[in-house]
Design a protein around this nucleic acid. Structure first.
Lengths: 339, 339
DNA sequence: TATAGTAATGCAATCGATTGCAATGTTGTT
DNA sequence: AACAACATTGCAATCGATTGCATTACTATA
């Protein structure tokens, strides 16, 4: 049997209320009894029943986090940022991955809701098009912060990265290195990040006076193989570009491996830029130029937003969308020697 | 205000007990009322208060998981395996990372305990040498399964991989490819996996009639830089080996990058084998030969063990240590052409 | 129709911590 | 010494779901 405050109370011949208050450092309890109670609690091996307290107070001191995949460098950086702030503020973080599956995302959201998390931080999965599971939170004024993959359908705080700007600079960089016929491996246009990246790509082309060739734009699910498939198609049609801007590093990687296989020189014949700065992008040969996103900072900011709302330091209705800067990292996959 | 079973009861002029039983599909409630209650609950937007139920029943249907880093391919595979089995059995999984920090590991363990997880699955952090935070669980017969990084100090179920065998085969492979002077980048010998890997390495040398040269063995913290430092030392002392067996892929990667920089040919001058099959090991040039560990399967097994204990299908005292097979993956970092 | 026997439902206590309000204790002031 | 004013402590209800036991509602049989 676990020790409860009642056991401590009985032991000391005082009431449970006093014990409860003392353990919570309520200043209304005298210094003397407070110390005595704490000492006794310690000696008796008391461990508070968080469930009971949460149940009573309706506060769990827990922040839920849902990401598509914990195994992505970007997401795990965000998680670390969230944990950093949360722990410093006495909150527990519980992490889940949706695997980009809508049913799992919904199920996790319901579970977190049922477990009464005080706030939720979430990046939408690829398949998510309906948002009832999020309304569960917003309807009840449970703080919700969306990050990276967000939606306009839900009115709440959002933290995104400057996908447009990143894509724009990546493309501009390719153009400045001499590229004129640039392909784009993009993701589903229903997802904000891929849409913005594609827009940035096209804007950079336009601004450089280059035409957009739709046959050079591919929209798939962003797997390694998607990149390969696109390049195979282009090669078959004799439409090989002189550069490719990929909306993630994974497709960039696929392309690099494929092009090396078929003996095309990188970056001289085809230059490549990816997106996200996955760890592998630095170590492949050639290393992949890419766009770095401030994951840790985003996580910190998301946690702060949620915690401020929980502590009611922020009004409920004045939602902001914060855009974090991105940074172009130039590596060998786009550094032409004949510049 | 949230709807409770009492609201439903009032609405239907029945008792809350009946509502509770009906919602739990208790067959003692007639088919008719059960259906009526469920329909009404649905219509009223009832959402059970899991906290209240957990508090009352002392069961949370939650399994806690602590790993050093969620961002490691091996660990995230294990997590996916755990989730797979857990979700199929109606359990929720809450994931935390210790960042290999003992204070954080202890704190998380306490939090999970306080939140009354039904079971815990854990891989020890690098710094963990005392195990009071685990006794919290074992003392109270809360199912605990250790995996990968385990300890003899705690008597419980354990799932480990065949580190010895993997290291043995890796080393043997290097020898068969002509290596005679093999260095080893190992981890802290207080940690079971690094100890076993080192033992496997030495055993393979012995069995091949090769002497163990202690100046070729390095024990650090297994960062990318640790590998580089070791090779720099060897190079300075004119003791460059003809092969290196690294106890993880990260050090192997560091070494490969360094050796390429200084113009040493891989694998012809120095062959390399790593451990863990991190995703990058496949895409670096040269790709890294490594030891693959069945992470997903381990996760599944760990979850099954925990759940069986929770459901009391397993005796409390008959703890087993399961060893999972490892597999040598030969890639270019060790594939000599002059074999 | 009475009654045993079973099926279905209700009563009320319970889990452990919290908290508004009441009650008691303590100190200082005149 | 009496009492105000404040400092401490205790009482008891409460959160929502669960569950052992009691009670009521049916059904079938004699």
């Amino acid at each position: 049997m676990e020790i409860t405050i009642h056991d401590i109370a009985k032991q000391l011949n005082i009431s449970a209320s006093t014990v409860s208050r003392a353990l919570k450092n309520n200043p209304i309890i005298s210094e003397k009894t407070r110390k005595l109670i704490k000492k006794t609690a310690e000696e008796m091996g008391y461990r508070p029943n968080v469930l009971a307290a949460s149940f009573r107070t309706k506060k769990t001191n827990t922040i839920g986090v849902i990401v598509p995949l914990i195994n992505r460098h970007f997401f795990s950086s965000v998680i670390s940022g969230i944990e950093d702030i949360a722990y410093k503020n006495g909150f527990t973080v519980t992490i889940s991955q949706s695997n980009d599956k809508i049913e799992k995302e919904v199920k996790i959201a319901h579970t977190l809701f049922a477990n009464r998390v005080d706030g939720l931080i979430l990046s939408l999965g690829m398949e998510t098009k309906s948002f009832e599971h999020l309304k569960l939170f917003t309807d009840r004024k449970i703080p919700l912060v969306l990050f990276d993959r967000v939606t306009n359908e839900i009115d709440t705080h959002k933290i995104i990265v400057d996908d447009f700007g990143g894509a724009y600079r990546a493309t501009k960089h390719l153009i400045e290195n001499g590229a004129r016929k640039i392909a784009h491996i993009g993701g589903p246009q229903t997802i904000n990040i891929y849409k913005s990246r594609q827009k940035g790509f096209i804007a950079a082309l336009n601004d450089a006076g280059l035409k957009t060739d739709k046959s050079l734009i591919f929209n798939g699910t962003m797997t390694q193989n998607d990149g390969v498939k696109a390049l195979k198609t282009l090669r078959k049609n004799n439409k090989l570009p002189d550069a490719v801007f990929c909306a993630n590093d994974t497709t960039a990687l696929g392309i690099i491996i494929y092009l090396k296989e078929v003996g095309i020189k990188l970056p001289d014949e085809i230059a490549i830029v990816g997106f996200s700065n996955e760890p592998f992008s630095e170590v492949v040969t050639p290393s992949i130029s890419t766009i770095k996103q401030p994951g840790f900072l985003m996580g910190q900011k998301a946690a702060k937003l949620v915690i401020n709302q929980i502590n009611n330091k922020t009004s409920d209705t004045n939602f902001e969308t914060i855009t974090m800067p991105t940074q172009l990292i130039i590596r060998n996959s786009s550094k032409k020697n004949n510049g």
